[in-house]
Design a protein around this nucleic acid. Structure first.
Lengths: 343, 343
DNA sequence: GTTAGCACTCTTAGCTAACGAGTGCTAATG
DNA sequence: CATTAGCACTCGTTAGCTAAGAGTGCTAAC
């Protein structure tokens, strides 16, 4: 429905605005190399593009800026997924640093992603259903305190200190941990709770005295479900964007960033592939002047996490989409290798 | 050198400015209940206070605002350390939530501190020289990867995943870890490195083959000195302060917050007690428009950490100083109890 | 279909005047 | 002699005005 020429002009306007953050007029457009028409012609096309809702004016005699609909069209029709970036291999670089913990890889990737783009990087997950229990352990610290340690086959370590109540026998705990280790080795983390409550609940009673108290206590210590973690990079990058010179917008932005659970829910709901939310397409009010681009990564077709970039609506969509595309397949690769390595 | 009346007026001006962030004129001051003089009298005193450097004008016919010297005098002479707060017991409240890990206690305390004050809370440490090694462990994940876990007597757990190079024999590692556990149990963490390099280096050779590689590798895995950690609370509180409506100041503030090592150095240098750094008394340029109030906490007279609040120079010194005073003794108490509990 | 020309719109910067909050000084007061 | 009333003065703020400039929309010519 757009002519070749309108397409070209729209693209030029958006590219220019992404770079300068300033409205652009017909004269400046006509001067670009790719434009072979006079300012007047461009003006007519711009008026049409505005009528169709792809452009806006900041005031009646200003140059044009892209509307959100304009960005949407740009993203849908003018940005190709196949455009390969200069092939920046983020994860590869991170791993070359000798980082082997998944948490660290993810955190570093988020930081690098934010450095490359100057936006705020957010990584969700990984929530790996194949993660299996490697070892449970309780280290006693004093007569009445201890620390519980849980190790998974991916090298993830969780720990929690707790005080041992008077009424719980420390040798009971020990016995129980031994049994648990025996029976739960190799069980996927997400099945632990279930398995405990069905198969093991009977078994335990026959081994230890004062069964119930100890068991419940242990369960509370080891198996609190921990929420999926968000990793951030470049939280303060938004301060560099000229559209955030207004402190009110900055406040709104950070109020959103701090609601981690809300952010996690938004990102968790993503389907496979790359999703672009432009301005008011975002449900959360606080980021209605931002764009959120996200990509999922997966393991054996199960989606395990999401990578996202949050910046102004005037975002370098082309670059960002290519980057997220490449990073998400890198992440999936790592997940795959990791998984097979620790099978 | 200041008369009773000058003191009173200075105090009223500072208290008012701390509350409103606006310059105050002689008429408004004269209207206050505690002031029994006419605006003219107050004006004369204000002129004197300005001559002495305690007050400033924003322009030649504005009301007065406190100078940094004014705040300094206020803090030194008008704020008493004995003023007890409404006795908010931060740590007590945190621990009632059932948190037992020191990291968590410190983190929660920082968050609460920032909520109470609306400034940014920074807690350094604890750097406990009495912390002792409880257990070392290596959990093998796959033929060529493993995770190293170190537990201290305070329930602190550190872990690090690593890949085991081909040339290292995994049974060597195991033997070595056993020996280390035997010999290093109860050794203060800060002495680990030394002890390894003197007493143990010989011992190890006799037990394992291919000694040096494995040993060096293990050392690298277990004993990378980790920098002292900073815990933050309320990083975005500064956005609420009217003096930070200028985005440039916000940028400068965050550039400082991000330099964690620099911040840590500043706080580490603190001597016992409460230290107040007002505006340009701060060495770091980026926070020359801020005040930094810090208090140390200790264990058996050894200083182990610092609690601080960073906010605008127009800070509620009275409240903040009382709060930090109380929190620092709470922290010291906890450290003491903790230490004896895990003796 | 394209473009030159031109009137029109709106922002920005600079200037001026009126206003008001607050000061500093002087002279009067108790 | 400390205190205060009175008043001229200063300076920031606001509103209104103008000129310049960037850009548009329309019309008429190419």
């Amino acid at each position: 429905m757009l002519t070749e020429r309108q397409l070209l002009i729209l693209q030029v306007i958006i590219d220019d605005f992404i770079e300068t953050a300033q409205p652009i007029g017909s004269r400046s457009i006509a001067k670009k190399n790719s434009i072979m028409y006079s300012p007047a012609t461009v003006r007519n096309e711009m008026a049409d593009l505005e009528d169709m809702g792809f452009l806006e004016k900041t005031h009646s005699s200003s140059g044009r800026i892209p509307s959100e609909k304009g960005y949407r069209y740009y993203v849908d029709h003018l940005v190709s997924l196949k455009e390969t970036m200069s092939n920046i291999k983020i994860v590869e670089n991170v791993m070359r640093e000798g980082l082997f913990e998944f948490e660290q890889i993810v955190q570093s990737s988020a930081e690098i992603l934010s450095e490359i783009t100057n936006y705020t990087a957010i990584i969700l997950g990984p929530e790996v259903f194949e993660t299996k229990l490697k070892q449970l352990q309780i280290v006693s610290l004093s007569p009445h305190t201890a620390v519980a340690i849980l190790v998974t086959n991916t090298g993830h370590v969780e720990h929690r200190s707790f005080s041992v109540p008077e009424e719980i026998n420390s040798s009971d705990l020990e016995k129980m941990v031994n049994i648990l280790n025996d029976r739960l080795y190799g069980v996927p983390i997400f099945k632990l709770h279930e398995k405990l409550n069905t198969e093991l609940i009977n078994l335990m009673g026959s081994y230890v005295t004062d069964f119930e108290t100890s068991f419940n206590y242990l369960k509370a210590v080891f198996f609190t479900d921990n929420p999926i973690k968000l990793y951030f990079g470049g939280k303060t990058n938004i301060l560099m964007q000229p559209e955030f010179n207004d402190i009110e917008k900055v406040r709104s932005f950070y109020s959103m960033i701090e609601k981690e659970d809300e952010l996690a829910n938004i990102l968790k709901s993503d389907k496979d592939g790359i999703k672009v939310r432009i301005g008011h397409e975002n449900e959360a009010d606080a980021i209605k002047e931002c764009s959120l681009i996200s990509a999922t990564y997966d393991l054996n077709e199960d989606q395990v996490g999401t990578i996202a970039l949050l910046g102004p609506t005037r975002m370098e969509y082309r670059k960002v989409i290519a980057l997220l595309n490449s990073l998400s397949s890198e992440m999936s690769d790592v997940m795959y290798k990791w998984h097979h390595h620790h099978e």
